[in-house]
C-alpha cells in the first residue's frame, strides 16, 4: 500500500519560496489504478518525483509497504527505485544505443536480478507487452512510439515493483495507440495486481481509472 501523509514541497528560488505541494494526504491500495490530473504547473510532476523517490518532501511522509522512503539515504533510495518502483515516461526515455531487450535487461541489472536469467525474463516481459522477437533486438529509433512505450512498460515491470508511476504515458501517442497502452496498464492492474499511479491531463483516461485525484495549486482537491 502507498500512503502519502501531509506531504509538502517548497522550492527556494531567487524570487522567494515556491510551495509546489501543500499538505497532501492520500492512500493507494495494492492493485489499485489511480490517476492524478491537474493543469500544467499544478504540482503533478513534483508529486510524481516524490512518490518515485526521485525527490524528497519538505514535510510529511511517503510510506510504501511500511517503508518510509523519505528517510532512506540517497543510495538506498536509488536501490529502492530499482526494486520497488517502475517508471513509465511520456517520452519513453529508453536508452538509445541499447536494443529493446537490452533496455529491459538494464533495469533487471539495476534491480539486482540474477545475471543468468535476466535475458529470459526480459524476453518474457517484452512478449507480455506485445513486443515480438524480431522487434526485441531493435534499437528504440527503429520502433514506433507505441512499441517504445510498450518496451518502457516492460522495463517498468522488470523487477516486479510495488507500484508503477506513469507520467503522461499516452501523451505522445495517437488516440488509438494511446488506448492500447492504457488498456495494457489496466490489464496489469487487474490481472497482475500491480498498483499504478498515472499522471495525466486526459480526463477520458482519468475517468477509466479506479480513482482520480485532482491537484490544483499544489493541493489535492478531489479524491
Amino acid at each position: 500500500m502507498l500512503e502519502v501523509k501531509n506531504v509538502s514541497k517548497t522550492f527556494n528560488t531567487a524570487s522567494g519560496p515556491v510551495h509546489a505541494l501543500k499538505d497532501i494526504t492520500f492512500k493507494v491500495n495494492t492493485g489499485e489504478f489511480v490517476s492524478i490530473v491537474g493543469k500544467s504547473g499544478s504540482g503533478k510532476s513534483t508529486l510524481l518525483s516524490i512518490l518515485g523517490a526521485l525527490d524528497t518532501p519538505t514535510d510529511g511522509s511517503i510510506t510504501v509497504d511500511d517503508t518510509a522512503i523519505e528517510k532512506l539515504s540517497g543510495h538506498q533510495q536509488t536501490k529502492y527505485r530499482g526494486k520497488k518502483i517502475g517508471f513509465v515516461f511520456q517520452q519513453y526515455n529508453l536508452i538509445p544505443n541499447l536494443t529493446a531487450l537490452e533496455n529491459v535487461v538494464l533495469a533487471l541489472e539495476f534491480g539486482g536480478y540474477p545475471a543468468t536469467s535476466r535475458v529470459d525474463r526480459a524476453v518474457k516481459l517484452l512478449e507480455s507487452v506485445g513486443i515480438e522477437e524480431d522487434q526485441q533486438h531493435r534499437r528504440p529509433t527503429r520502433l514506433s512510439g507505441g512499441q517504445q512505450q510498450r518496451v518502457s512498460i516492460a522495463r517498468a515491470l522488470a523487477n516486479e515493483p510495488a507500484f508503477i508511476l506513469a507520467d503522461e504515458p499516452t501523451g505522445n501517442l495517437d488516440s488509438a495507440t494511446g488506448k492500447k497502452i492504457f488498456d495494457l496498464l489496466h490489464d496489469l492492474s487487474r490481472n497482475q495486481n500491480t498498483t499504478i499511479v498515472v499522471v495525466t491531463h486526459d480526463l477520458d483516461i482519468a475517468g477509466k481509472t479506479d480513482r482520480t485525484f485532482t491537484i490544483v495549486d499544489g493541493k489535492i482537491t478531489t479524491k
Binding site: K79, R81, F89, I95, F110
Partner: peptide, 16 residues
Amino acid sequence: RREIGVMKAIGGTDGK
C-alpha cells in the same frame, strides 16, 4: 544528461 537521469531513475547507482 537525460540518459543519465533515466538510468538513475530506474535504479542505476552512481557507481554503475
